[in-house]
Write a protein that binds this DNA or RNA. Structure first.
Length: 465
RNA sequence: GGGCCGGUGGAGCAGCGGAGUGCUCGUCUCCCUGUCACGGAGAAGGUCGCGGGUUCAAAUCCCGUCCGGCCCGCCA
């Protein structure tokens, strides 16, 4: 007999069906036992009567939470006063005729349908497979899937190509701390995990794909926050022959299309308002202002663009460093300032860099890139890199630009953050199936963990002490 | 690296110097034919994170340490 999902049963009144799933609850009334059966489609009630098949009834009596079962029986319409209006399958129930226990379950350390936030996150992360059985968590992960699927549909229809870029790649010298992977064949040398596929996507433009995207895993070895994980997912995208206007326009359409389809109750501006960086700072004291009229309204999506970021800023030591991204192109009218040696002039330079912000969160950075390597070299020089360092760190990248690099630009919205906001969750951990805890540990598998002496020897790593 | 908060039966909490005292849920046994957070009766389950100190007496106060959460730094 073919398996039926419980959500289908309301259409199958009077028919014999076989359902499979987990026992969410057992209500024992002596001569009458109810089971709430959960599968990926939802919940349904199963009834066992005493007085008939004694062996079947005894077996039903032995069921416990989270047992995996296969039950066959007849779908019955419930009488008027027995309908459960809170359950999509509440107008029917299954009159059980056979019961097979496919797997028993130990008593779960917490209740599967616990109120969100009631169970400590530590415990939840350690038993994530149980936590993900919670309807709210399952819904988050399924919405994440749909959201990514709609993004792919949209970008595919716009002529974008999804290209996978390597996870084992080269250390980028600035910005966040890299995760390093020791090389076995080349002792003392390391791969770095990508902080973003930045240079690869620019290379893809030189390769002529013109429109690239990737649901990209990014890695940054910095301390965690509620909206920060060591590995996270960005919608990474890049386009050739575009100006800033084109990038902003397609992203507005992307988010409006996808969100309107999946979250019809959410309200967002038809045209995302724009704020010049200096204006945002002076008016809101923030480069990621929360522009909602009502800060408690979770259905209001106050998207906004922040534009014209500074090219340079000073770090705490007073050294000049790039403010946004070393690949962001300065505004055309500011280009000549790049050759000034006056610090004030340099600090007044503005770039074709832009951020997408939403309800007080930075969703995305992006920019029109420098595609003239003379200018790119100059930016690196201004950051204090000498000729040797530029060649060492960016030589191959710069080399590629000799061979016909089209003007290009892009951006990379963080998927975890936008899903956190759309699902109205307090942290991005709630929309990531298997996140790390605040100390960057995977509590389920116990990583990081020590390597064996053999592994270390192969990698040429001597342990300290 | 720094600041703040927390750690008490399986889960979540209360107790904050006087007996492991209490609550909700779960677990186990028994009863129950219409429940759906079923109900009723009973029971089991604890090194109060760990180590040291103060005290007649420590879950409670102090010091240290481990673990966790939030924030600052950091996050091209």
């Amino acid at each position: 007999m073919e398996r039926t999902l419980v959500a289908k049963t309301p259409e199958l009144v009077g028919q014999k069906v076989l359902v499979k799933g987990w026992v969410q609850a057992r209500r024992d009334h002596g001569k009458l036992i109810f089971i709430d059966l959960r599968d990926r489609s939802g919940l349904m009630q199963v009834v066992f009567w005493g007085g008939g098949d004694e062996a079947l009834f005894k077996k039903a009596d032995s069921l416990r939470s989270e047992y995996v079962v296969a039950i066959s029986g007849t779908v019955q319409k419930r009488s008027e006063n027995q309908v459960n209006k809170d359950l999509p399958t509440g107008m029917v129930e299954l009159a059980a005729e056979t019961l097979e226990v496919l797997a028993e379950s130990a008593t779960p350390p917490f209740e599967i349908d616990a109120v969100p936030g009631e169970v400590g996150e530590n415990t939840r992360l350690q038993y994530r497979y149980l936590d993900l059985r919670n309807p709210r968590m399952a819904r988050n992960i399924r919405m994440r899937h749909k959201f990514i699927k709609e993004i792919r549909n949209f970008l595919d229809s716009e002529g974008f190509v999804e290209i996978e870029t390597p996870i084992l790649t080269k250390s980028s010298p600035e910005g966040a701390r890299d995760f390093l992977v020791p090389s076995r064949l080349h002792h003392g040398e390391f791969y770095a995990l990508p902080q973003a596929p930045q240079q690869f996507k620019q290379i893809a433009m030189i390769a002529g794909f013109e429109k690239y995207y990737q649901i990209a895993h990014c890695f940054r070895d910095e301390d965690l926050r509620g909206d920060r994980q060591p590995e996270f997912t960005q919608l990474d995208m890049e386009m050739s022959f575009v100006d800033q206007e084109d990038v902003l326009e397609i992203n507005e359409r992307l988010f409006q299309t996808v969100i309107a389809k999946l979250y019809p109750d959410k309200k967002m501006p038809k045209k995302f308002p724009r704020l010049i960086y200096d204006e945002a700072i002076s008016k809101y004291k923030s480069d990621k202002p929360d522009l909602r009229k009502n800060k408690d309204d979770n259905d209001e999506l106050a998207f906004a663009w922040i534009t014209e970021f500074p090219v340079f800023e000073k770090d705490e030591s007073g050294k000049l460093t790039f403010a946004h991204n070393p690949f962001a192109a300065p505004k055309d009218e500011d280009l000549e300032k790049l050759y000034s040696d006056d610090e004030k002039t340099l600090l007044s330079m503005r770039s074709k860099a832009y951020d997408l912000v939403l309800n007080g969160y930075e969703l995305s950075s992006g920019s029109i890139r420098i595609h003239d390597m003379q200018i790119q070299r100059r930016v690196f020089e201004m950051m204090g890199l000498n000729e040797h360092q530029i060649k060492e760190r960016f030589g191959n990248f710069i080399e590629a630009f000799k061979y016909g690099a089209p003007p290009h630009g892009g951006m990379a919205p963080g998927l975890d953050r936008i899903l956190m906001i759309l699902q109205e969750e307090p942290t991005i951990r709630e929309v990531i199936a298997f996140p790390k805890n605040g100390e960057m540990r995977d509590l389920m598998f116990g990583s990081p963990s020590p390597a064996t002496p053999e592994q270390l020897r192969e990698l040429g790593i001597k342990t300290v002490e």
